[in-house]
Design a protein around this nucleic acid. Structure first.
Length: 391
DNA sequence: AATTGCGACAACCGCCGCAGC
DNA sequence: AGCTGCGGCGGTTGTCGCAAT
């Protein structure tokens, strides 16, 4: 194993971070922001490379990190998102504020994979293991049914065999002929108007090279808005009955959007984080790049220091660094924001604005756009613009 | 009490895309 | 257009704590 290219000339420390190092890094970033990561170690007086400092900040020192074990809802969401996004951990992490991609990746590899296998589900394909072992039987073009499971309240997909109309049936036969499809049916969790997690069906996610004639909204969530309803907890209601026939026709460009990491994620992450727009305490040091500021909760998304008056019920496993700068459990803040149980979200209003509202730091889109430092000016907004025009 | 196995978590590595020159 | 540095990502490995033997 060699050293990072950025630090091979220097004798730099590796391995676990000491409390002293953490304190130096935390103090430096709190005071100056990270700016250029490669310069952070020198400025902070650390014998580490910039990459190491960045990673330490992102995965451990950020004030907005959520501590403690994953909730059942979070696990469910990870499973659902993984079925759509695959191993795009960073994108999955953007939908779980306070959680890092590393954390989610570890959970997946150490826990969820095992659980899914125990339930007879292939964690990589989200299909029944029996099916995965017989790929020939899985070609949709040759099957009149799809088999898929339901994510139940315990967070694991029950291998319920349930026939549903095959999306492929409505593909243009000529264009679909000879193409190989892998189709996942899925449900997803959305914050609802109650404290319970609601189920609703994601569009039948189709990975493949097919082309189809019907133009659909390339944004999957807008697509959902057009074709899906929000259901109650009863998973039985959330499955086949609600899948729109139009969900079957997805062009390859749509597919690319569907799996395009920018599609569902940056809609929310591109909005300016209030902390960046308003916080005099913790300005965004890395303006211009939505990924580094605000809603993504990643990297330089520096948040305001939490209101201490809102803190309570500190987790037992808080680490020492959380007590620096006025010890606070950020999870409490996030919980106070009623993540996943956002009363402000209307069931019938989950469009692009709804996505903005879904973001824990809720600002309606118009209000976001009025922010002087709105990240909507960024490149990701340029990607969103065409989508918005289709609303 | 010592050892072993395992799970969870932390950190590193190599690669890639992008921007600046 | 090519080079270089940087940031970011996903895969992998290392470390630690705990339970079982």
């Amino acid at each position: 194993m060699g050293r990072h290219s950025c630090c091979h000339k220097q004798k730099l420390r590796k391995g676990l971070w000491s409390p002293e190092e953490d304190e130096k890094l935390l103090k430096h970033i709190t005071k100056h922001g990270h700016g250029c990561w490669s310069s952070v170690p020198k400025l902070a007086g650390l014998q580490r490379c910039g990459k190491s400092c960045r990673l330490r900040w992102i995965n451990y020192l950020r004030p907005d990190l959520k501590r403690g074990t994953f909730s059942q809802q979070e696990e469910n969401l990870i499973i659902e998102l993984h079925s759509v996004l695959g191993n795009r951990w960073s994108q999955i992490a953007t939908q779980l504020p306070g959680r890092t991609d590393n954390e989610i990746k570890n959970l997946w590899n150490s826990c969820i994979k095992k659980k899914l296998r125990q339930r007879g589900i292939d964690p990589s394909t989200h299909r029944l293991l029996v099916e995965s072992e017989n790929p020939e039987e899985n070609k949709v073009s040759t099957s009149s049914e799809n088999h898929f499971g339901l994510y139940t309240g315990d967070g694991l997909k029950q291998p319920l065999i349930q026939p549903v109309p095959s999306p492929a049936q409505s593909f243009d036969k000529n264009s679909a002929e000879g193409e190989e499809f892998i189709i996942y049916n899925s449900t997803a969790f959305l914050p609802s108007s109650s404290n319970s997690i609601s189920f609703f069906p994601l569009p039948q996610t189709i990975y493949g090279g097919a082309t189809a004639s019907l133009p659909l909204n390339p944004n999957p969530f807008l697509f959902l808005n057009q074709n899906c309803r929000v259901f109650d907890m009863n998973p039985e209601l959330s499955c086949s009955s609600s899948i729109s026939a139009s969900a079957a026709s997805i062009s390859s460009s749509v597919l690319s959007n569907l799996v395009d990491v920018k599609s569902p994620v940056d809609l929310s992450s591109s909005f300016t984080h209030p902390a960046c727009a308003e916080s005099p305490t913790f300005p965004c040091f890395d303006g211009g790049n939505p990924r580094r500021c605000g809603g993504s909760f990643m990297d330089g998304g520096l948040l305001t220091w939490p209101d201490m008056s809102t803190l309570q019920d500190e987790p037992e496993d808080l680490k020492w660094s959380e007590y620096l700068q006025g010890h606070f459990p950020v999870s409490s803040i996030l919980q106070n924001q009623q993540l996943y149980a956002n009363n402000s979200i209307s069931e019938s209003h989950f469009d692009i604005e709804g996505l903005a509202l879904w973001h824990p730091n809720q600002l309606p889109q118009q209000q976001q756009q009025q922010q002087p430092n709105s990240e909507l000016k960024g490149k990701d907004f340029q990607r969103i613009s065409p989508v918005s025009g289709q609303i």
